[in-house]
Write a protein that binds this DNA or RNA. Sequence first.
DNA 1: TATTGACTTAAAGTAAACTCTAAGTGATAT
DNA 2: ATATCACTTAGAGTTTACTTTAAGTCAATA
Lengths: 122, 122
Amino acid sequence: MQISEVAQKFGLTTDTLRYYEREGLIGPIAKGKNGIRNYTEDDIKRIQFVRCMRAAGLEINFLKRYIKLFDEGDKTIKERREILVEQRKILKDKIDAMQEAYDRLNVKIDLYDKNILDKSLM
Amino acid sequence: MQISEVAQKFGLTTDTLRYYEREGLIGPIAKGKNGIRNYTEDDIKRIQFVRCMRAAGLEINFLKRYIKLFDEGDKTIKERREILVEQRKILKDKIDAMQEAYDRLNVKIDLYDKNILDKSLM
DNA sequence: TATTGACTTAAAGTAAACTCTAAGTGATAT
DNA sequence: ATATCACTTAGAGTTTACTTTAAGTCAATA
């Protein structure tokens, strides 16, 4: 699969895909003799994982660290589990904060709908 | 209330509070004759609102726009409602993406706990 | 053959949201 | 009185995650 197809598939730009590769989040992607990247099914799976985590706001640096540990093999299993748990906590807290704001927006929109706005911003 | 107390109360720095004020998200905060800011209860409420929205990832620019419309009075009610609905949608999509990543992390951590990791990253 | 389009690289540029620096004022504690 | 501390300003610097630019290669089509 060529870079533009992959980009389209995930709603990324080709620039972003090359950037992820430069940063070591994916690949290195094998290239044909013309120097053009050819993405394998495994590459695609990796991108999907990275996309899911990035869409959730996990940092590039975390992903780099995790992937590096992964490549170091079984001796890093314990550490990998720990950083996953740490990220899960961060994610949970963010979801909670967003849920709170979401609820608050709902209440506010409701006030707009019922024409019972007060003078305060919120 | 002085700036450092307010900063402490919300877990912000004084720089951030002054930055928010510069950007028009809060205040202008009244100052004593020594030039020092004195935050009122209304100021605090506004900061709480901004904090909640920022913690959820809503952009400074959106908040600026909303607050500007608010200050323009009743004639902007319709537009204000619209942008709230728009932000609620954005927030909902983000929560969903984060929930997906959260679930995925849970599954992965479970595999680590059960010692049934495979070779794939995820 | 010429141009079009997709690809390549390294490196500079951008946007958002702070964060820090430098230089200064004024009240209070030693 | 002198030092310390909290505050003030304008403006420069930082971080993260891309995004754009410049310069070029290669294959296919008009």
